[in-house]
Amino acid sequence: MKFLSSLFIVTIFSAGLSHAAETAPLELKDNQAVIQVKGVVCSFCAYGTEKNLSKLSFLDKSQYGGDGVLLDINTHRITLALDNSKTVDYPAINNAIIKGGYDPVVYFARVHGSVSRVNGKTLLTCPKSGQVYEIKGENLVGLSQSSAVYVEGEITVESVTTLTEGQPVTLVVSHIEG
């Protein structure tokens, strides 16, 4: 009984600590993609996920210990250092995480590019990689054609899994600069 009581106390204590970590604010930097992933609580367990991700060709492998992947077991987020001259294959990221044994929840990205309006859609084209995002959100009102901006926002897992080649990646904007 004493053992069970101790176990209960440890569980509650640990739950409290983890909750504090989960609410850590997200600070997006240029050339990064951050993925919130369910179940990433141990790097030894997620070694295969990191290995899968590190094989992706569009990462900046000079970052995060030489593989361009940073796993944070306290926030349950995976940060990828991106090579801004290459297009980001979001479905490949999704596949690498799922094959690694985990479930992506949402992607966060900070993207630099110039705005264009095509067929009623607002597009953002990255100058070096040529990658195109369709940006959505209430804060796009007043955004002028050809302006160069940094945008931050979320990409849903659903939009990634249904993405076809050549189609713009849908980014729901939360913040615009520039």
Binding site: S18, H19, A21, E22, K38, G39, V40, V41, C42, C45, H76, G101, Y102, D103, V105
Partner: peptide
């Protein structure tokens, strides 16, 4: 059979 939650597995 795995269950991945926000902060646990």
């Amino acid at each position: 059979s795995y269950t991945n939650q926000e902060s646990s597995t």
